[in-house]
């Protein structure tokens, strides 16, 4: 590998890492901060992708599709939280696992009924559809770089929201002591509903802007679910910064793993997770609790 290709692989790794952060960001909120184990995270990712596909083929524009779909997913998230999730805050994690596993099955079946079982493609918006030539035979798609930019913005926005705003303070306080926050006169129920909806919308948004790259197909959520949990576990529960760093580390490990140790490529990430768990069981940036 000469220097040019090393740099391109570095770019691949960082870009993939940012993509991972985008997909895992919703889970960071819901699992990392609210403490709800949401196995259906991948389903919301899939729903986002399918919404992007069906709405963009109706409106002819991915941007329009995303603008219409985001309010829909927020409403979906709020509805689910009010109807189902809020009854489980005080219960054991096992109930959350059972409920959200059930949701996976429900959403898969609904997807099959509404949209069918075909593979679909979403066109890259014309403005971003060209590629930048890097070497004599390799170019880099602009859309991938644009997604990276969106991911960075999102990371900054989330960090700001959680660490620097009053709402973020209430969320963090609610996560560590729900009763205390409530007795201070803060409507913690509403805050939780909002945070859950935001997490769902983020997962769906990831599916939407990733749809032109990944295509849209049944069970596409299953593949991202596990890696999202790995991101949150390595990064540390409750840390947006940790999730970002973990995503980048995983992106690089996976990219260079495939190139340098192809025989073990499938294991590199999990090996990494095992090492982190032994070395720092609370994750890279997790608070000791």
């Amino acid at each position: 590998m000469d220097l040019a290709f090393f740099l391109i692989q570095l770019l691949n790794g960082l870009q993939y890492g940012l993509l991972l952060f985008l997909v895992a960001s919703g889970l960071t909120l819901i699992f990392g901060i609210m403490g709800i184990i949401n196995l259906a995270h991948g389903s919301f990712y899939m729903i986002g992708a399918y919404l992007a596909w069906s709405l963009s083929s109706m409106t002819g524009s991915l941007t329009a599709a995303i603008l219409i779909a985001i309010p829909l997913t927020v409403v979906l998230g709020m509805g689910l939280e009010r109807l189902l999730i809020q009854h489980l805050y005080k219960r054991d994690h096992l109930y959350q696992v059972l409920l959200t596993y059930g949701l996976i099955l429900v959403f898969e079946e609904l997807r099959s009924v509404i949209w069918g079982d075909d593979v679909h493609g979403v066109a890259v918006p014309a403005l971003l559809s060209h590629s930048i030539p890097l070497t004599e035979n390799l170019s880099y798609p602009v859309y991938r770089l644009a997604i990276s930019g969106v991911c960075l913005l999102l990371a900054a926005g989330l960090y700001f929201l959680i660490q620097k705003t009053r709402l973020g303070m209430m969320i963090r306080a609610g996560a560590s002591n729900r009763e205390m926050v409530q007795s201070l006169g803060i409507d913690i129920k509403l805050i939780y509903t909002l945070v859950f909806a935001l997490g769902i919308a983020l997962a769906a948004f990831a599916g939407m802007i990733n749809a032109p790259l990944s295509s849209v197909f049944p069970n596409m959520g299953g593949g991202v679910l596990i890696i999202c949990f790995v991101v949150v576990v390595i990064g540390g529960i409750g840390s947006v910064k940790g999730a970002l760093i973990a995503s980048l580390v995983i992106g690089l490990a996976e990219t260079f793993g495939q190139v340098l140790v192809p025989e073990l490529a499938g294991m590199v990430v999990y090996f990494l997770m095992a090492v982190v768990l032994v070395w720092r069981p609370e994750g890279l940036f997790g608070g000791r609790s």
């Binding site: 290709f5 870009q15 593949g223 996976e254 495939q258 192809p262």
Partner: peptide, 22 residues
Amino acid sequence: ELFVPFPQVEFQALLTEIASIK
């Protein structure tokens, strides 16, 4: 012989390698 872990669909690293092998 290039392998992607199943059922992963991130191909960028190996596409880059293909470009370097020519």
